[in-house]
């Protein structure tokens, strides 16, 4: 399924864009640490299955790459000088415990694949991922100005989930299988990015930097 591999690749590219951006500009202005922290929680909860069964070398290495890239980004933002000095904690103030972690838990109780602990945790990770970008969008709206490379980052992340939706439709057309949890979570996630992507595409066309 080519769409799915494009999606995985885009996801990986988004981490790379972010790491290169932080290193090049030597700061992490405009980036939400809370969003990165939620992504780490998403991967740690979802990829517990690394200890449960083996799928493929591709699957295992991608999971490890996703986790380690996110850990590395968190390290750069929180601990590595000089990058960590420019972290703007005052603008990164979305109440994520109250709305993201709790909201995703409520959504997972409503829409899930199964009530078994692993399946419920997996469904929670899907909803957590869908909502994870909210602190970042909240922060971008507060500081108004968006560096172009940051738009590339959010752009890559948004398109990645869209390609997963295309891949699920493709899979459904072949096998008739559909996972409502992934599909609904993916749709919510893509809608959250869509507004941003709309301005992103306009700014690409005009060839100028963008501001919200």
């Amino acid at each position: 399924n080519p769409f799915r591999y494009i999606a995985d690749f885009l996801h990986l590219v988004s981490f790379l864009i972010l790491i290169l951006k932080i290193r090049k500009t030597r700061n992490c202005l405009g980036l939400s640490f809370r969003t990165q922290e939620i992504y780490l929680a998403v991967f740690c909860v979802r990829y517990i299955d690394l200890f449960m069964y083996f799928v493929s070398v591709y699957n295992t290495s991608m999971k490890l790459l996703y986790i380690s890239s996110t850990v590395f980004i968190i390290y750069l933002m929180k601990f590595k000088k000089p990058y960590c000095l420019s972290y703007d904690s005052a603008s990164d103030d979305f109440p994520h415990y109250k709305f993201i972690y709790t909201g995703a838990a409520v959504l997972a109780l409503l829409v899930h694949t199964d009530l078994a602990p692993f399946e419920l945790g997996w469904s929670y990770s899907i909803w957590l991922e869908a909502l994870a970008i909210i602190p970042q969008l909240h922060m971008l709206q507060k500081i108004k100005d968006v560096e172009n490379i940051t738009s590339n980052y959010v752009g890559a992340l948004g398109v990645y989930r869209f390609f997963y939706i295309v891949s699920w439709i493709y899979k459904y057309s072949l096998t008739g299988d559909v996972c409502w949890t992934s599909l609904l979570g993916g749709i919510v996630q893509t809608i959250l990015y869509a507004d941003f992507l709309y301005y992103y595409i306009i700014s690409l066309k005009s060839g100028k930097g963008m501001s919200l």
Binding site: R4, S56, N59, Y164, W180
Partner: peptide
């Protein structure tokens, strides 16, 4: 309706 998730997705 099937609610079937794929083990190999990331």
């Amino acid at each position: 309706k099937k609610n079937k998730k794929s083990k190999d997705e990331l």
